Amino acid sequence: MTGVVVIGAGQAGASLVAKLRSEGYDGPITLIGEEPVPPYQRPPLSKKYLLGDMALERLYLRPESYYAEAGIDLRLNARVTAIDRAAQEVVIGTERLGYAHLVLATGSRPRHLPAAIGGELGGVHVVRTLADVDAMAPGFVPGARVLIVGGGYIGLEAAAVAASRGMQVVLVEMAPRILQRVAAKETSDYFRALHGRHGVDIREGVGLERLLGDGQVNGARLTDGTEVAVDMVIVGVGIVPDTALAEAAGLAIDNGIAVDAQGRTSDPTIWAVGDCASFPHGEGRLRLESVPNAIDMADCVAGNILGAAVAYVPKPWFWSDQYDVKLQIAGLSTGYDRIVTRDGAASVSFWYFRGDQLLAVDAMNDPRAYMVGKRLIDAGKTADPAVVADAAADLKVLLG
């Protein structure tokens, strides 16, 4: 067998094939994607692209011509239906394609509302692919009424775009507060106030009982007994790793496709990268859903396919754009026991500590706090809470 086959033409898959070529791999490479367009950026989809501020071609990670020029066989509109591990082949329709190395970059898929509560009515959307955003774009008109289900970052970003377009926005979050799963109360409070200033009606501790309408959604009944009239619904209730192919092939699954420190699955000829993969971290396993993780892990696994034998060490960072606020997050806040707030004139940052150890930073319009916090976390160092809390102090002293 020769060649590398990559299933999944998202950020991770596209990064991996480009890295293989740039590192001198000259064997056959096949990149297989289910969508009809070349690999593209997802973050601008629901913001600049949806608002018409970014053309389709600018979404592409690389010009479509790159793949042919680099000798990469890019298969679009193609779906792998099975992996034959014994033969080291993947099945695409009636074709069987052999591999020396197979990389699963299948990403994640959004959770949908059940059909029993109206999830299949017209006008109900999720935000994941280009087709998803193209389908909802005609409804983004001033005055239209939109219900957003879910108060995580996906839901809040959708709310910001809708409110900026002049739509009437109601957002429901079943948990006691927005961002409860991923951020401290302080960050939740900040974004609740921000959206309130832009007219978004956020209802916490309230879930969706069912959607109303005959064929097309026109309303929603909430768990507190109230009903709201709607023209469209955006569902942002999380994503799940796409492990179907891996499961069917008998690979180990543990909160995603389980890989070792170098990115190998339970089959030594198969690797996994990005949203779909969980890797060893501390005493357990970790799966990260982010663009930086997709790129960094893909680069590491590409090197390991070429024999580098390097363990993947994540350096988690994330971002979210809402209105004129850029949130930048460094680190992982799991297990924090206190928050130190740094409040500037036009910026604020929340620093997560466990005991004396700095775990993470949420920085709103505060790139310096983000940069210093990220460097400290990446180096395994901590920060003096007194310096953090003093808005007049120069954070760079923490790096000394």
Rank of each mutant, 00 (worst) to 15 (best):
L56D: 11
Y60V: 03
T94Q: 14
K19G: 02
G236V: 07
D267G: 09
V124Y: 15
R21L: 02
D324M: 07
A100W: 10
I239R: 10
G151W: 10
G24I: 07
I154L: 11
R165K: 15
G13E: 04
A277V: 12
S108G: 14
S108R: 11
G123S: 02
G207E: 08
R42Y: 02
L51H: 06
A311G: 03
G284I: 11
A137N: 01
V6A: 11
T341H: 02
R128T: 08
Y153G: 03
V37L: 10
A55E: 15
E120D: 15
L76Y: 11
G355A: 05
G3M: 08
A137K: 12
A175S: 09
R287G: 03
D296W: 09
E157C: 06
I253D: 04
H101S: 13
D224A: 09
E204A: 11
V5I: 12
L332D: 00
T81M: 13
R109V: 10
L376R: 00
I178D: 06
D73A: 14
D343L: 07
G98K: 00
A309E: 14
I148M: 05
C300N: 04
Y370I: 03
A302T: 04
A55P: 04
A330M: 10
W317T: 01
P36I: 14
A193Q: 13
A193H: 05
E209W: 07
I178N: 05
G207V: 12
G380W: 00
G10I: 14
A386T: 07
D343I: 07
A70C: 04
G10R: 02
W319S: 01
R58W: 07
H281W: 10
I377A: 01
V240C: 05
M232S: 11
R62D: 02
S22L: 12
E34C: 05
V310I: 10
A183M: 11
R338G: 02
I339H: 00
D231H: 09
I32F: 12
P280G: 06
V273F: 08
T30P: 03
G213R: 00
V169K: 14
L194N: 03
V235D: 13
L31W: 07
A78N: 05
R285T: 04
I234L: 15
V206S: 08
R109L: 06
V397A: 01
R375C: 06
V6F: 09
Y99P: 11
R79Q: 13
Q41F: 03
I295A: 02
V146I: 13
A9M: 03
N304P: 07
L306N: 02
A162H: 14
L399G: 01
L222C: 06
V172I: 15
L399T: 04
G282H: 15
G331D: 04
D132G: 09
D231C: 06
V161P: 11
P268A: 08
R203A: 08
D53Q: 15
W351F: 04
P114S: 05
A393P: 01
L245D: 15
V91H: 09
E283M: 15
Q168R: 14
G282T: 10
C276W: 11
